[in-house]
Structure formats: structure tokens, C-alpha cells
Amino acid sequence: MAVAQDTVERSVRNGVPLEYATADGELKIAGFWLFLSTDLLLFACLFSTYAILRTNTVGGPTGAQLFDIPGFTTETFALLTSSFTCGLATHEMRRGNRAALIAWLAVTVLLGLVFIGFELDEFISYATHGAAMQRSAFLSAFFTLVGTHGAHVSLGILWMLTVVYQLAVRGITAVTARKVFIVGLYWHFLDIVWVFIFTVVYLTGVLK
């Protein structure tokens, strides 16, 4: 990025984090917050659909019959922890510690993979036990809502890997710092969405 180096240095001296040090970085972070707003609305639509169709099981399995409490709880704690480690990555980045930054991002990716593993396992076991998305409107809504989140997480893992690669090659610069920060925002956002899936889908499903 051909932004004058002195501008960056001046900003950092003034206590501005590197990712905000260029106008470009600042604009992109602002733009990404707006993207998260749109994504929130997308999930809002899927949540509404789920809320309206969740009781329409037409004789098929219900949530209470399907959801496995230890399974979705482990999944949830994996993702919660990954959000924490992702926060630590940003923290280390701001201290200028590249090795720790990459290490925490790697831990985040691993936890993300654990999460996806659990989810795939859950989906496959449902599908093989006669609870595929074609069974009822409830299951269509369930697979679409949870699966859309899972697709987001999978994309986030790939994205985070490209960021790790760039950090390894280029170190912490105004550009890579911005990329870490933005992928971090995305990751935390997915954690928030998951908390609601955990609550609205799983906990409500097993609510006694």
C-alpha cells in the first residue's frame, strides 16, 4: 500500500492502532461494520422463518427429539473460546507481537474446525436418521439457519488462513493489521449469531 510511511508512523505515535492509521484502513473498517449490519438482517430473516416454522414438524422429528445437549454445548463452548482467542490475536497484534498473533489465529482456526466438525457430524446423523431438510418445514428452516451460519464460519476459516499467510509473508503492516482486525470483527459477529442460534434453536428446542 503506497500510503506515505510517515503518516502511518505519526498515527501510531499518537496512539492510533495501525489498522486505523491509513484513510483506506479506516474506510474499510467502517464499510465492514455496515456489511455486518446487512448480514445481521439476513440472519434476522432466517431467524423469523425458523420461528414461524419451528413447530411445523408434520409428524417428523421435533427439536426436543433431535438436539443432543452435550453435543451442542461443546460446539458452543468451542466457538465462544475461539472468539476469545481471536480477541487475543488482535490484542497481540496491537502489541506488535507477530508470533503470538499468528499463534492465536491458528488456535482460533483450530477451534473453528472443531465447531464445524461437530456441526457436520450433527447434520449427517440427522440426515441418516430420517431428519433431512426435505422431511418437514421445521427441518428445512433448521438446516438453512444453522447451515448458513456454518457456511459463514467455514468461509471465515478460509479467510483467516489467507490472513495468516499474509502475516507470515509481510509481517504486521497497516494493510495486514486492517485485515486481521476485519476478519476478527467477522468472527466475533458469528459468535453473536451463534449465541442466538444456541438460544433460539437449541435451548428453546429442549426447553422443558
Binding site: T49, I52, L53, N56, T57, V58, M133, Q134, R135, S136, A137, F138, S140, A141, F143, T144
Partner: peptide
């Protein structure tokens, strides 16, 4: 998804709701 994967968001007979 209804059309290509055979889901039932909007098919009434399988609990879907077209008005959604």
C-alpha cells in the same frame, strides 16, 4: 432451496407457509 433441494419452506403439505 425449495426448488433445487426439495425443502419445504413454502409447501403447505409439508408444514411450509407460502405467505412467509
Amino acid at each position: 432451496i425449495d426448488r433445487v433441494a426439495g425443502a419445504h419452506f413454502f409447501t403447505m403439505t409439508q408444514g411450509g407457509n407460502a405467505m412467509m
